[in-house]
């Protein structure tokens, strides 16, 4: 009480300093500029050189790195494999989490809370460590998966050693590891829907196809678009560590993708210019994906 009277004749706050917001933002902004935005610009510059990271001299090659990249059939292979990773993420990081979230909504109450906790728990394990565990599961002949195949009387596949299978095997690890996270995001999206609809879905059991296709899905559409695109946007990132730990992109580069290739060029082959050029192309691709995503959401009137 006493203190309010310190300003007896006005109820308004004292004037605030105009430049204060900038001062508050400065530290955070500084780190963003130095460690996020400056690297994007620096990649452009670096991509014009041939440099092995240690030699004191870098050789200017103009657009030579881009030319070499675009002529290399490897880029096409990386692109194809990256798209395959995205397609697999659409299954494992979009459809499956969505299905589990819809199931959870039908359960409700204490059980739902328990299921959320349990499904999220595996995401707490470091992905590099999880990849080691899967390395064991995938062991040829002696590993549990190979033994399971043998028990069924089937020939055990080579998993990570098989050029046809390695990418799928690696992708499964990434999808497994991040399932709980995407499940929770899906659940958050669903919970933002009008309560009555969800209640109806729960009572109905939401098994009726008519209800699903005429009521729930149209209402869900914006959420679905968002979930789908965020699953895609992070897919290559998620696969990065399992690729590095389990296959290093092999066999014969068959499990690599664009993100991993950037890393390999820089820190395995020490071709800084090539790595930067690939990073620039990757950034452009991501930007296109994100801008496309915003456009799509805008058109659907989500922000309206």
């Amino acid at each position: 009480m006493q203190r309010v009277e310190a300003y007896p004749h006005r109820a308004k706050a004292p004037p605030r300093v105009a430049w204060e917001p900038y001062l508050l933002l400065a530290p955070g902004l500084l780190f963003l500029l130095v460690f996020v935005y400056w690297p994007l610009v620096y990649n452009l510059w670096l991509s014009l050189f041939e440099w092995n990271l240690v030699s004191p001299q870098a050789r200017f090659v103009g657009l030579g790195n881009y030319q070499a990249l675009l002529q290399d059939p490897l880029l096409g292979q990386l692109l194809r494999q990256s798209l395959l990773y995205l397609a697999l993420a659409a299954l494992g990081n979009f459809l499956l989490p969505l299905a589990l979230a819809l199931l959870t909504l039908q359960v409700g109450g204490r059980w739902a809370e328990l299921y959320q906790s349990l499904l999220f728990t595996p995401t707490v394990v470091a992905v590099s460590i999880a990849a080691l565990v899967w390395l064991y599961l995938y062991l040829p002949a002696a590993g549990p998966l190979a033994k399971a195949f043998a028990a069924l009387g089937l020939p055990a596949p080579g998993f990570l050693a098989d050029p046809q299978l390695a990418l799928y095997a690696v992708s499964l690890v990434a999808n497994w590891k991040f399932l709980g996270f995407h499940y929770l995001i899906a659940l958050a999206g669903l919970k933002a829907l009008p309560k009555e609809v969800l209640e109806a879905a729960r009572v109905d059991g939401a098994v009726g196809w008519a209800f699903l296709s005429r009521v729930l899905l149209p209402l869900l559409a914006p959420t679905l678009v968002f979930l789908f695109l965020s699953a895609l946007a992070s897919a290559l990132d998620y696969a990065f560590v399992p690729v590095d730990v389990m296959t290093q992109g092999g066999p014969f580069g068959q499990s690599s993708n664009l993100m991993y290739a950037v890393y390999q060029e820089a820190f395995r082959y020490f071709r800084a210019g090539m790595a930067a050029a690939l990073a620039v192309l990757l950034t452009l691709g991501m930007a296109a994906l994100i801008v496309g995503q915003l456009r799509l959401l805008e058109r659907r009137g989500v922000y309206g």
């Binding site: 955070g28 963003l32 400056w38 690297p39 994007l40 990065f240 890393y263 820190f267």
Partner: peptide
Amino acid sequence: LFVASMLVPFVVTYLPSY
């Protein structure tokens, strides 16, 4: 700028940061 920073994949910034 703050929000968009979340979308930049780590791997494109590794080399310059390093």
